[in-house]
Simulated assay, not measured.
Amino acid sequence: MTDTTDTTRPTRRLSEAGVSIWLDDLSRERLSTGNLAQLVAEKDVVGVTTNPTIFASALAKGDAYAGVLGQLAGTDVEAAVEKITTDDVRDAADVLRPVYDATNGVDGRVSIEVDPRLARDTDATVATAKRLWATVDRPNVMIKIPATVEGLPAITAVLAEGISVNVTLIFSIDRYRAVMDAFLAGLEQAKANGHDLAPIGSVASFFVSRVDASVDAALTAIGTDEALELRGKAAIANARLAYAAYQEVFGSERWQALAAAGAQPQRPLWASTGVKNPEYRDTMYVDELVVAGVVNTMPQATLDAFADHGIVLGDTVTGTAEEAAATIAAVEKLGVSIADVTRTLEEEGVQKFEVSWDELLTTTKTGLDAAGA
């Protein structure tokens, strides 16, 4: 895989370095006020990601959903949640449709996640993904499926139906390799099923900052100078190793055969890029992971911070695998198992989204009850 993007000239525009900016947020307010359209026009935003936490927060704030809750009064709460979230995603997809068309389907994508309570249920995940795809009914939507062991065959099955997929909650390199294998298998099946591969989009959402939050806590507990010096380095090293794995897989003959049939690569997407430690530079998970052909999905605060003072100095990923591996080895030498950390983060990630889903149901029910009173 080659890219001729010029990343040698310092710039504040990630797009000039070949990085796609997706907004990690969505709400009815952003849509109704034109805020999302403004971000697309002025901040180089070319996609949107959502999750249960984002929707729970959106429903809990202000009165932007008062009208739709009134219309849905008396409706089953889970049906109401699906109606609200799919409507928002459909409208966002319409806002991003010109980007989708201009980039031949590479960007302009909007993601919606399957019910996180289904993360360990392959068949239910596949069925829900198909329903969401049909309900939103927009070609530039991606269905988010978690990268659990049970999610892997669901990813393959959904792609095989010609449905675009955003694979979420990836923390480890081994699981990322399994995700890429599931993607390739899905496209191979889609081709065998007679689907046009060109419109099928996919990203692999590799989570970043949460790795540092967990590893840093362990290093701080160890407390030696060597341990403290390694804080804030594991997450970026882990992501850079993921990119090296991506280069390997998407340089293979297996991928080349699919590319020749018109397939798009499954791009790495850096997720969880908001900095959680105030001692760290607030754009570190953006400017340290710049490489052409990836996506960085950012919360509003990170988007604003980078627009204000972020600088792209060039490709900060390619050729860093050896150094990244040494960083991870140094962390593990101190007794911090990256495998244990990433396994725990996946479990916690699923649990957190389940909690957010319950909050979304509760908030929606409260709104429905108030509207029907």
Rank of each mutant, 00 (worst) to 15 (best):
R267W: 02
A242D: 02
A245R: 03
A245H: 05
Y285H: 08
L269D: 12
K233E: 07
R281I: 12
V286N: 11
Y246I: 12
Y243N: 03
V295E: 08
D282C: 03
A234T: 09
K276Y: 03
A244Q: 06
P265A: 07
E248N: 09
F250T: 13
V286L: 12
G262N: 06
E279G: 15
Q256G: 15
E253L: 09
W255Q: 09
A261S: 14
P268T: 13
R281N: 13
K233Q: 14
M298L: 15
Q256D: 13
A242Q: 09
E288Q: 09
Q266V: 06
G251E: 13
A260V: 11
Y243D: 05
N277E: 13
K233Y: 00
M284P: 04
Y280T: 07
V249R: 14
Q256F: 03
W255T: 04
V290P: 01
G293K: 13
E248W: 02
A261C: 05
S272A: 13
K276R: 10
L289E: 07
A245V: 09
G274F: 09
A259M: 04
Q264E: 11
A235P: 08
A257H: 00
F250H: 04
D287M: 04
W255E: 11
V275A: 04
V295G: 01
D287I: 03
T283G: 05
G274Y: 01
L258P: 08
P299R: 00
F250A: 06
L241N: 06
P299S: 02
V249E: 12
T273M: 10
V290I: 15
R240W: 01
W255V: 05
W270D: 10
W270M: 11
A263V: 13
A271E: 13
A245C: 05
W270G: 10
E253Y: 01
L241H: 01
R281L: 12
A245Y: 01
L241C: 10
R267P: 07
A263N: 10
Y243L: 10
R267M: 11
N277V: 10
A242L: 08
T283I: 13
Q300Y: 07
A235I: 09
A259L: 04
